[in-house]
Amino acid sequence: MIEALSYEFMRNALAAGLLASLTCGIIGSLVVVNRIVFISGGIAHAAYGGIGLAIYLGLPFMVGALGFSMIIAMIMAAVTLKARHRSDTIIGVLWAVGMAVGVILTDLTPGYNVDLMSYLFGSILAVPQTDLWIMAVMSGVILILTVLFYHDFLAMSYDEDFARLRGVPVAFFHFLLMGMIALSVVMIIRVVGLILVIALLTIPPYISEKYVPSLSRMMILSTLLSAVFTVGGLWLSYSFNLTSGAMIILVGGVAFFLSIFFDYGRSAIRTRKGAG
């Protein structure tokens, strides 16, 4: 690993992975406790429309993907505002339409040879310095917003009605959260690709949720777990020359099943003790 770091692309990959871990930890926790995994999946896949748009117009990836996902996220926010858990159909449609737009736009781009795989499974080994800076700014924005409005997000996620009575502008924070999801999704696409975004966004919070007593600690533990998964996956992919994005997710997946076995064992021991 150390020798790998002598390559600039590896250093960049590591930095991109760690920045993505920070956003995954924070936003993933909010996504999981709000149970809006499906909406996040919709935003992530619709982002492909943005990638297509960027290719078609010759814009940088970040600009196209971010702009497009932001618009999709705001539409989804508007649709889900009244019933946060019940707008599956429209989300599903936006999910598919976004991807279709991306495919058509790349078709329409003359002479473009699409490297679909790099968007579907990430291209962490090809993150340029400029994208790294953009990612750093995005992570910073997400971190600051979360710290500043932590109690509002907590109250809104736990009990929307009560938060509303306390004067928390729930609609505003709903839109803000969707916007933050769009930001992080675009970042994470860089690392693991849009197919695997949901895994990296949800596996660490799912594991953390069981062991922590508060949302803030869930965010911290999820960030650490994401960092372990990304660095571990990156190292394995380097050592065995395998696709990095998929390797990161596999590491996360193994940890996920280990945690389930661990819980199962723990509760089995507890019941046996209780019986004896």
């Binding site: 406790v33 500043l148 306390r166 004067g167 502008p169 007593p213 600690r217 869930m218």
Partner: peptide
């Protein structure tokens, strides 16, 4: 409704003290 939500008793009660845009955690 969400029994898994990671939040302590004290944190839930402190939600009663929220005001609009308190701005500091």
């Amino acid at each position: 409704a969400n029994q898994r939500f990671p939040v302590s008793v004290l944190d839930v009660v402190l939600m009663g003290r929220l005001t609009t845009f308190r701005r500091w955690p």
